[in-house]
Nucleic acid binder design. Structure first.
Lengths: 380, 380
DNA sequence: TTGAAAGCGATACCAC
DNA sequence: GTGGTATCGCTTTCAA
C-alpha cells in the first residue's frame, strides 16, 4: 500500500558535533560562517564536516526557518519554448545561489492555476513567479494573500491592478513592447513602406496592448497611413495570423508590409501570402515579435523584435535574490530593451502593388483547419 | 544580510486537535484516512480541518517521513521544446498525486549535471528522471549510489550499462525508434522510392543508433538500394541536416527521398533542396522523426514519425508512482509505439530524376553559418 | 479506538 | 566563544 520507509540515513549535525566534542549549535554556526565562532574551531568543524561528508537536511532546515530555498514558477502552458528560455535564465541565477525551481502549468485554466499556487504555498516556496495570462480576481487575491514575494512576467502590475486587485505589491519584469514595435514600424518606413498592416495579440494581455500602441505611435509619428482597417484583431496563434493576414491582404488597397504582434502570427501571414502568390519580401514585407527559434531558420528568415527571454529570467532571478535579503523592498518594474533582428522577410516597398490572387476558399475556418491536418496517420 | 524571518504561521495539526479536544495523533490518522479511526471521529476531524483551512507542512512531513513528494528532472538543455512535452506529461500524472517537479538543466556539462543531482539528493527528492545524453561514469555512479528510483528517458539501460555502469537498476522509457524509421522506409517504398538517403543522429546516442538500424533493416527487408553512400553522418541539428543533405543530393545518382533522423535535420534538407531548385515533394520526398511543433506548419508540412513525448512523460510518471508504492519492483523498459504522420513532404517517386542545380558555394561551412546570420541588428 | 510522548535534524535563544 | 535546550509540525510507536 503506502510507500515503504526510506532506509537512507545521512550524517547529521549532531554526528559532526559529537565527533569533535563540540555542541551542535557551534557546528551550525560554523557552517553558516558566523563570526561568533573562533577561527580555529570553525576550521576544525569545516574540515570534519567535509570529511564526514555532511549534508544539511533541506527538510529540517525548512521546518525551522520556514524557508525552502525554492521558488515556484507558473506558466500558462508547457508548449511555448519561450518560457523555457525564461526558466533557463532564472535558473542560471537561482541555482548557484542554492535555490531550486518548481514548475507548474496552468494549462490556461483557473482551477489548475489555483491548485498550483496552493501546492507551492504548501511547499513553502520562498517566492512565486507568474508567467500567465489567465490569472483572475480569485487567484490574484490568493497570491497577494499568501504574503510571498511575487514577480509578474509580461504583465504589468498596473494592468493587474486596474483589472483585478485594488493594490498590489508585485514586482514586474517585461520587455519594451511599445518601443520594439515602434522600431519595427520605423524600419519598414525606412524601406519606403507607407501602408502597413498590423495584426494584434489578445486584447486582455497588457503586453499585446503595448505592442498595438507601439504600432499606432509609430504610424502617427512617422506620418504613415493610419486607416483603421489596417489593424486586424488576432490572438497570438498561427491560425489567427492567417485570418488576420487574409483580412489585410484582401483589402482593396492592400498594405505593402504586415507587422504581426508575434512570430507565430507572422508565420501565418507568410503562409497566406504564399498562397496568394505574393512573394516575400519582394511583394510583401512581413515582421513579427519574439524571435522564436524558427524565425532564424533560413527558410523562414523572419525580421522580428527579439524578446529578451533569457535576460528576463535572469532579471527575475536577481530581483528575487534582492528581495530575499531585504523583504522591505518596494515593488519595482523592470522593462528590458528589445533588439530588431533584420532578416530576409523585409525589403524595400514595391513600386507597384500587385494585389495577389484572392484566396479561393469560401469557408475559411474549415480551410485553415484542413491545412493543419495530416492526410494520413499510420500507426507503425 | 541574511533573509528576514518569515512571519507567516499556518494552522497546525495541534490547533485542529485542540479545537476538537482530541490528540494530534488521532488527527494525523484521520487525515490519512486510516481505518483505525472511528468513522464519526474521522468525519468530525475532516470537517474541522477543512473549516480551519488546515494545510500540512511539507517540510515537517518530509523531515519525519524522509520523503519530499517531489521528483527531480534533469534535462540536457532548456531549449528543446520536446522536453517540455515530456515534463507536461509527467506533471499530468505526478501533480494530481501530490508530487511536485524540480527541473534542472545540465547545459550538456558534466559538472553542472553532477551539481544538479547533488542538489536534488540534498532536497530529498523521491526519484530522479534523466533525459540527458551527457551522463558519464561519474554521474552514473553518483546516481546509482544515492539509492533513489531513477528513470532514464531515451537512453536504454543496456546502452548505459555497456558504456558505463557494470550493473544498473534504472528504469527506461523511450520510443520505438527502430520501428518508426522502418515504417517511414516502408511508406516511401510504397510510394515507389527505391533509392533513399538517410542522415543519422549522433552516434553516441542509443536512440539515434536505433533509428539508423530501422533504416538499414527497412532497406534490407524491402530490397531497396543499400549503397553505403546513402547514409550520411549527422548530429541532430539543422546545420548537420544541410550538410548531410548536400552530401546526399550531390551524389552522381541522387536519392529520390531523404530520411533525416530528426525533424530539425529534415528542415535543413528542405532548405538545401530548395536552394538546389528541387521541389518538395515533386522532385524529392523528405521525412523526419519527432514531429516537432513546426513540422505541422502548412508551409513546412513535414511527413514524420511522431515522438510520443507526452505519453513518455505520462509513462514515466506512472512508473514512478508504482515504484513509490512498491520499492522492490525490478527495473523495466517501456518502449512506446510511434505513429507516422503523413503530410505534404512526401509523394510518389519521380519518373525521371532531375539532379538539381549544384550548390554554388565552395566554402560550405561559412555559407551555412551566413544563412543563419541576420543582416542587421538594430538596438531599438 | 484514542491519547501521550518520543523523535526527525537543524536553528536560535540564553546561559555560562 | 561555546554549550545546553526548546522548538519547528508532523508521524509513529506504545499504553491505556
Amino acid at each position: 500500500m503506502g510507500a515503504r520507509r526510506r532506509a537512507k540515513r545521512g550524517v547529521t549535525i549532531v554526528d559532526v558535533a559529537e565527533a569533535l566534542g563540540v555542541a551542535p549549535s557551534t557546528v551550525s554556526n560554523a557552517l553558516h560562517d558566523k563570526d561568533i565562532v573562533a577561527p580555529r574551531t570553525k576550521a576544525r568543524i569545516m574540515a570534519m564536516a567535509k570529511a564526514m561528508n555532511y549534508e544539511a537536511s533541506a527538510a529540517a532546515r525548512a521546518l525551522v526557518t520556514r524557508q525552502s530555498s525554492s521558488v515556484g514558477v507558473i506558466l500558462p502552458d508547457f508548449a511555448n519554448p519561450v518560457f523555457n528560455e525564461i526558466i533557463s535564465g532564472l535558473n542560471s541565477i537561482l541555482v548557484p545561489a542554492g535555490y531550486a525551481t518548481l514548475v507548474a502549468s496552468t494549462a490556461n485554466d483557473g482551477r489548475t492555476c489555483k491548485a498550483a499556487i496552493h501546492a507551492f504555498v504548501k511547499r513553502d516556496v520562498d517566492a512565486i513567479v507568474v508567467i500567465s495570462q489567465c490569472l483572475d480576481i480569485e487567484e490574484t487575491a490568493q497570491l497577494a494573500g499568501c504574503g510571498l514575494p511575487v514577480v509578474l512576467v509580461h504583465r504589468t502590475p498596473a494592468d493587474w491592478q486596474t483589472t483585478h486587485a485594488p493594490s498590489s505589491t508585485f514586482d514586474y519584469v517585461g520587455m519594451d513592447n511599445t518601443g520594439g514595435v515602434y522600431a519595427l514600424v520605423r524600419h519598414l518606413a525606412d524601406l519606403g513602406h507607407r501602408r502597413i498592416g498590423f495584426i494584434t495579440g489578445p486584447k486582455q494581455s497588457s503586453a499585446a496592448c503595448e505592442r498595438t500602441r507601439g504600432f499606432r505611435d509609430g504610424v502617427a509619428a512617422l506620418g504613415l497611413d493610419a486607416a483603421p482597417e489596417l489593424v486586424a484583431d488576432g490572438s497570438y496563434d498561427f491560425i489567427a495570423g492567417m485570418r488576420g493576414a487574409r483580412e489585410l491582404l484582401s483589402l482593396p488597397q492592400r498594405p505593402t508590409a504586415v507587422i504581426a504582434a508575434n512570430d507565430l502570427m507572422a508565420f501565418g501571414t507568410m503562409d497566406v501570402a504564399q498562397q496568394m502568390g505574393l512573394s516575400v519580401p519582394k511583394d510583401l514585407s512581413i515582421v513579427g515579435v519574439d524571435d522564436v527559434f524558427f524565425s532564424a531558420f533560413p527558410m523562414i528568415s523572419l525580421t522580428t523584435a527579439r524578446q529578451p527571454a533569457t535576460e528576463i529570467g535572469e532579471s527575475v532571478g536577481e530581483r528575487l535574490l534582492e528581495r530575499f535579503s531585504d523583504e522591505a523592498l518596494s515593488p519595482i518594474a523592470v522593462t528590458l530593451p528589445v533588439e530588431i533582428i533584420v532578416r530576409h522577410s523585409t525589403a524595400e516597398a514595391p513600386s507597384r502593388v500587385d494585389p495577389g490572387s484572392p484566396l479561393s476558399t469560401d469557408n475559411l475556418e474549415a480551410y485553415l483547419a484542413s491545412r493543419w491536418k495530416p492526410s494520413t496517420i499510420i500507426v507503425a
